[in-house]
């Protein structure tokens, strides 16, 4: 059975790196893997979504509505926006950070209130985590992505060492230490 994982967030939050780590972890399990990302105009602080799919044989590189086993959301509004991509028995992991989009900043629209409460009410299996806090604790606010990968790893049935090996291969050496501690904080947070 194929696994489909979506990573959603705001351009600049490091979702691309997170999807690459996940993709490489899947390869080490010997699976067929497809990872899809968006570049260019869609990246500039806009809503960003990447897809990771793995299994025996993967055809489509993107995940459709109702098709995600897990959504890893870097921001609350983005979790809400893509909620209809989650399978009915899927799992949502959401960073509690809120980033106002420009229509909210200029007062044209409102940031929805109590997003997490509303999601929970729908019966979604959800884990929320303050990953910004974890990243700061690890020593660099930019490590939010790897902290969230840590949370994701703790909910998946893959040997922890595989994740650590891939992080070592993926992130620049000088940021390795801080990323490993961010990963550990995420992995052990719940």
């Amino acid at each position: 059975m194929n696994k489909s994982i979506m990573i959603v967030g705001v351009g600049g939050q490091g979702t691309l790196l997170a999807s690459r780590i996940l993709g490489n972890v899947a390869i080490k399990q010997g699976f067929d893997v497809k990872v899809s990302e968006v570049h260019g105009m869609s990246q500039r602080g806009g809503s960003v979504v990447t897809y990771v799919r793995y299994g025996e044989k993967v055809y489509a590189p993107i995940i459709d509505k109702g098709g995600a086993d897990i959504i890893l959301a870097f921001e609350q509004l983005e979790a809400y926006r893509y909620l209809d991509y989650l399978k009915n028995d899927g799992k949502l992991i959401v960073n509690t950070q809120q980033i106002d989009p420009m229509p909210v900043i200029i007062g044209a629209e409102q940031y929805p209130e109590n997003i997490l409460g509303k999601i929970e009410k729908k019966g979604v299996s959800m884990i929320s985590v303050d990953a910004t806090k974890l990243a700061l604790e690890a020593g660099n606010v930019k490590a939010v992505n790897v902290a969230l990968i840590g949370v994701l790893a703790s909910k998946m049935n893959i040997d922890k060492q595989v994740w650590l090996d891939v992080i070592k291969e993926t992130v620049p050496e000088k940021f390795y230490e801080v990323n490993v501690s961010a990963f550990e904080l995420g992995y052990n947070c719940k």
Binding site: V10, S42, G46, R81, M102, P112
Partner: peptide, 9 residues
């Protein structure tokens, strides 16, 4: 849900 268009950095 409010849209999140790309913005200048």
């Amino acid at each position: 849900v409010p849209v999140r268009p790309p913005v200048m950095c």
